[in-house]
């Protein structure tokens, strides 16, 4: 399913989407709940699909594994939580370990290449979200937006246009340019990744399943 979406462009009328489950995981404070909100609003309000979002609630405000789950569908969403995750983004090793037990065998797994040394699968796409945010944008806190840009480019889970609109509606005033840059940086690294042909041979093997 994920691979069928790969070539989708923002302008084309999005094809009928069956239930798609996205999980964004990391440590508290990395802004993954906000990333989930932006993704959910992009899909729900701008791509006009049904959307449900849940998040982990723990006693910790910072640190610890945290996650946001976004279910996107063109049908009514009955069961509102993730059952088999189509797209998993992990920004820390702990999150990758904690939340990877119910992934779809052929689903997307995207991890931060610096912070996740042992991805849950050899198929995982490892990209330098945090490093890019820190070194190229001088704002480590926009790693979440870089990652959003990348997964959108890779999977087409939402349209690029919708994502940008949702992002602009959410971010604080005065940070619009920075966030747009972060989004573009994410897309760029995903495009480069695709161009490098590293996606070939990513189809699941029996070892993965």
């Amino acid at each position: 399913m994920a691979s069928s979406k790969k070539k989708e462009t923002a302008k084309a009328k999005a094809p009928e989407m069956e239930r798609m489950e996205v999980r964004l995981a990391g440590s508290g404070g990395q802004g993954l709940i906000l990333a989930g909100l932006i993704l959910a609003e992009a899909a729900g309000l701008f791509d006009n699909r049904a959307v449900a979002m849940g998040q982990s609630y723990g006693p910790e405000a910072r640190g610890g594994a945290s996650k946001a789950e976004v279910i996107i569908s063109d049908q009514d969403i009955d069961y509102p939580l993730a059952t088999r995750v189509d797209l998993f983004l992990a920004l820390t090793q702990e999150a990758a370990d904690t939340y990877s037990w119910d992934l779809k065998p052929d689903g997307w797994i995207v991890v931060d290449s610096d912070l996740v040394s042992h991805p849950p699968s050899s198929r995982a796409v490892a990209l330098p979200f945090t490093a890019t945010a820190r070194d190229k944008l001088n704002k480590p806190m926009v790693a979440n937006v870089v990652a959003l840009g990348a997964i959108t480019e890779l999977t087409g889970v939402v349209s690029r246009k919708a994502l940008e609109k949702a992002l602009m509606a959410r971010v604080p005033k005065g940070t619009e340019a920075l966030n747009k840059k972060a989004l573009a940086a994410g897309s760029k690294m995903a495009k480069a990744y695709q161009a490098s042909g590293q996606l070939a041979g990513q189809e699941p093997t029996s070892e993965d399943v």
Partner: peptide, 10 residues
């Protein structure tokens, strides 16, 4: 309940 109260939906 907690799920419905914390759930975000369109």
């Amino acid at each position: 309940d907690e799920t419905v109260a914390h759930l975000r939906e369109k």
